[in-house]
Design a protein around this nucleic acid. Structure first.
Lengths: 227, 227, 227, 227
DNA sequence: GATGAATGAGCCTTCATTCAT
DNA sequence: TATGAATGAAGGCTCATTCAT
């Protein structure tokens, strides 16, 4: 659905389109967003967009399923902590950290991602995509937690499905709100003025990530008194 | 904006309209939902809906700000919350429990409520309501946590704002997903066939609530090794 | 189209309906006026209005073709100047005077009347009525002017059709504006607060009428230098 | 509110739209006129009209505040108004003459203009424009008359406000009716078949203008017997 | 006779998509 | 390839009229 013409575009122009789409889909639900605003912000003609993408839905799909994934990976890998096999909590900490970094470096895209599943699920046109995506995320977390339980990092008897669900939420939109709170602004302000996130130092971000993981780590650790 | 004519309707008809609205607003974002579909599902004419409500926004507001609150209260009160002043965790457990009960008894409405703030925030027309609502919820949790910290139930040094944010999410949409997982179905199936939730016994629901609270309780409890 | 039920109403109720209709049709064009506002202002139910009149158009017709004519006649006759056959200018002065009196005593109705022909003409549904009414008015003036010309009150060679047209306008809406100007208020204020017209004394009104007639009298009088 | 797209249209198409709008707004009050009828008559799609104008109100405004003014100016200037400073009556005669010419060349537009203020006044959306326009017209006439009075062209003691009001009416819609009468047709016929007005020669039109001005000139001239 | 809920045609406006230039 | 005018299907809402109570 992404046409080859889009990839032939000059990087500058391609980026203008991507930015415009992120802004629009980030500020409005899929159904409320309009391609008119996107092309206006991107400074291209309406006809052109339809030469790059099959339509509104195709642009949305590409943005979230391909572009965002790619950027997220890039953000994560650019801060690789490559050493050997990590324990559950180190892995999760890295994931949280990557999430925070991604949020800090591309807050608009991150916010869009946070609304991703919900939007997909709500727009019948895009509903099926949501299921797969959600299932994959859940399964990844579940596997991690199960390995951790096997290694004794999590106490036995825990309902890992429940833990995975809560973790997914915290990793998703929760991270955004925490970050906004840490910067002393609301969610809206954070997205309108991403510069505030740059004020956070490397160290602060790490602490922030640990705050969130700590709660889950301690919350799921083996205990003598726990069920 | 809700007109008296709506309250004069026969209970059956009124409920048909409420159900239709919950289904539509639950299945689509506010901007994408249409009153055409609502009236079609309710089996009334378009003109009639406008005799009951001032418009689409008024219906949405009433559904969430009045009807849902009322139903939530009813769901909570129908399960007596008895004795004296509770500790932080008992209070939260009650709140979670109430949330689960409400979710179990009216899953569609609960899901709509979980999307409430996000929708409000996205629709400029309804934006201001969101701020107040979100602030109130956050403050209630924050006060509770602060009292708990003062009593030694939570360890010192915790960033209570962060904890409150994570709790709010778990109390909100997280609850829905956990419930769906517990019933062994997906979110969509849960909403399409609410009867499955009735299979859950009183005891099971209590356990479910404890599972969720336990993670946060242990995760925030005083520890010798914690920062 | 006026149903007998309307005449059986108590005078008070009947008048409430009439006043409400005058207000609404006076403040808005026929197409923009709504029966909802009329029944609300009259304090009756919508169904009732349809038991008194065939519909919106029937009410409008009755109000203008029957009620207003009747009231105008009443206003004129209540100030009868009954003596013998009058000259053109005395007759016109009486007519102007009657117009001013009617305007002063029932400004809203007068304003409605001023919009009458235009509205009728503009609403296809009512168009045919306009022609007849306009023709009758024009003919009455024309006859008067012709008699005057025969008696030497108007100079020969005048295009009486043209004079009649200008006079009709002055008698109509022009009178309203002059009256408003005389009271030191705008047209809108005059209609919103009819009490201001009561400040005008009998003598002042007469002078006002003469001001208007004088221009036409002198303007059409025989002249040695006129064509 | 007029978009540039409208000016880029082919003259023929643009004119079709203008004609359709003049017909519709000329045949119905602003509130009763519909854009559906306009686009149908113009042979364009509904969406297209909204690419040319911001909406119904914008089209109406443009038509009356810009297009009509421009056409009026063109009609006036195409008949050179030559030499030095004119007296009151020469000025008014020119104004009347210009009015007649405009009416003769574009009767539908002229008729629409005659209804202009009234419509504006009735539609709250457009109300404020009316006040200014009306005030300006009145003031222009008043200044002219005051200068004339100072030069002895009008008798002292005249209420110039009243005269200005009557003149404004004659210049406005009165002109239309006089013209129709002169052509031996009704107002409706004149609008349905504008070709009849072309039968009037230059000389006839001048005479027509003089007929109207004459009444006011003689009607307001200094007199020994006048008050 | 009085009421007011119910109806549905019709209004203005928006927007994704197409297509001729 | 780029453009932007053209389209028409909805969407939210209004309102004259009907009709069961």
């Amino acid at each position: 659905m992404v046409k080859s013409t889009f990839h032939n575009l000059s990087p500058a122009k391609r980026q203008r389109i991507i930015d415009a789409a992120i802004d629009e889909f980030g500020a409005r639900s899929y159904g409320t967003a309009t391609v008119d605003r996107i092309v206006a912000a991107a400074g291209i003609s309406k006809g052109s967009l339809y030469q790059y993408f099959g339509g509104k839905a195709a642009l949305y799909r590409w943005l979230l399923l391909e572009y965002m994934t790619e950027r997220k990976m890039a953000a994560i890998e650019s801060h690789t902590a490559p050493q050997g096999p990590l324990g559950v909590w180190e892995t999760l900490e890295q994931a949280f950290l990557a999430g925070v970094r991604f949020t800090a470096s591309e807050p608009k895209l991150a916010r869009l991602g946070a609304r991703f599943l919900r939007d997909l699920e709500l727009e019948p046109e895009l509903a099926q995509i949501a299921q797969v995506h959600r299932k994959n995320s859940h399964q990844w977390l579940l596997d991690l937690l199960q390995r951790g339980q096997a290694h004794g990092e999590l106490r036995a008897g825990l309902d890992l499905d429940t833990v995975a669900i809560l973790l997914a939420q915290a990793l998703g939109e929760g991270m955004l709100e925490v970050l906004a709170g840490r910067c002393g602004v609301g969610l809206s302000e954070l997205l309108d003025d991403p510069s505030v996130t740059n004020a956070l130092g490397q160290q602060e971000v790490l602490e922030l990530a640990r705050k969130v993981t700590a709660i889950f780590r301690f919350g799921t650790a083996p205990r003598e008194d726990a069920p």
